[in-house]
């Protein structure tokens, strides 16, 4: 129908526009007019997509390809790349197991692999703790706040506010608060609890947990607000019907609200995992990941090595490893989502 209308007006594009919304490209007759239209169409596409694609390929894809290349070289980044020496996957094996040469392995394990696995461990712990601590806490708060109460609007606004602050400013703020002679130390001592002897952030055992606390302060608001947005979409009749049938508050939450905001939780989990893998600013501002790497991340390690030690090849290898982590997370997420969606549609059909 649309095709007829379109050819009636003598304007091919309508066909395509309609088709793009509907799916496959319809077969258009190869008249001269159509050919001209096709050429014009490709020109338009090039003009519209071209600039974005060019910028994207140059500044996102190209650097990644170069990182993959640099990662195979031994390269002092103060020197031109021409002087770099090809060493295959040595940078990777150094990070993972301290290199393959038995003579240097012990030294390299200490110099490369230990900091690397320490950083990976920190990243992984942050992801795990986000799921085990931030998720339930945020969920509970969201469920309790999911109703009308005086001051609801301002409460939501305030809870979300830390998310928009720069990690730098939030980090410096906590650096002040957590100073060994600062207010938090005083308060904790005032109620008679022990404080870490080397300071909240510098202490080998407390440092990581302090860092995780700061990260949670900044990011738990995002979880709460996303969950609340999801809960707003749960039909009220469902909850009312359940409670009339005698379901307790907990049962309503557990059986209705939490399952129904599953998609929102998945979105949050994905954002959180990707964010945790890339964590840099906060850790860097807080004394570059801690003096003994208590909360160093792969990213702080990479920047440290790239800028302080000028080891371009090794820093690039770390970048590629980080990329592989992000990609794995994204693929797992997409497969899970797709499996859910197809499972749902099969059930529906």
């Amino acid at each position: 129908m649309t095709a007829l209308e379109a050819s009636g007006t003598g304007k091919g594009p309508v066909v395509d526009a309609k088709a793009s919304a509907a799916g496959p490209h319809p077969v258009t007759p190869a008249t001269d007019n159509a050919k001209k239209d096709t050429r014009r169409k490709w020109l338009e596409i090039a003009i519209f997509v071209g600039p974005a694609l060019l910028i994207f390929l140059t500044f996102v894809v190209f650097p990644m390809v170069m990182a993959a290349r640099y990662s195979l070289y031994k390269w002092d980044s103060r020197q031109p790349f021409e002087l770099a020496e090809f060493i295959g996957f040595d940078n990777y094996t150094r990070a993972l197991i301290g290199g393959t040469d038995p003579e240097t392995q012990e030294i390299f394990w200490k110099a490369y692999a230990e900091p690397f696995w320490n950083a990976v461990g920190n990243n992984v712990q942050i992801i795990a703790l986000s799921m085990l601590i931030q998720l339930p806490v945020a969920m509970l708060i969201a469920l309790v706040l999911n109703r009308k109460f005086p001051g609801r609007g301002p409460t939501r606004l305030i809870i979300f506010a830390p998310y928009v602050l720069a990690e730098v400013t939030a980090g410096l703020m906590w650096l002040m608060l957590l100073d060994p002679r600062g207010p938090v130390t005083e308060w904790v001592q005032a109620i008679g609890l022990p404080t870490p002897p080397q300071g909240w952030l510098e202490d080998p055992t407390w440092g990581f947990w302090t860092f995780f606390f700061i990260v949670s302060w900044k990011y738990i608001g995002l979880a709460i607000i996303l969950f609340l947005a999801g809960l707003a979409g749960v039909p009220e009749e469902l909850q009312e019907a359940a409670s009339i049938d005698g379901a307790s508050w907990w049962q309503v939450q557990w059986r209705i609200n939490i399952p129904l905001i599953g998609p929102t939780v998945r979105v949050w989990a994905f954002l959180s995992i990707i964010g945790s893998i890339q964590l840099f600013d906060m850790a860097w501002v807080l004394n570059k990941g801690g003096s003994t790497g208590q909360y160093s991340t792969i990213a702080t390690l990479m920047v440290d090595i790239g800028t302080q030690r000028n080891d371009g090849g090794y820093a690039s290898a770390l970048a590629i490893i980080m990329f592989i982590f992000s990609m794995t997370a994204a693929i797992i997420y997409l497969t899970l989502v797709m499996r859910r969606d197809t499972a749902g549609s099969r059930k529906g059909a």
């Binding site: 996102v60 990644m64 990182a67 890339q278 990479m302 690039s316 990329f323």
Partner: peptide, 10 residues
């Protein structure tokens, strides 16, 4: 999947 952090060096 290509966060800026990852590509910062190149």
């Amino acid at each position: 999947m290509f966060p800026l952090t990852v590509a910062i060096f190149p």
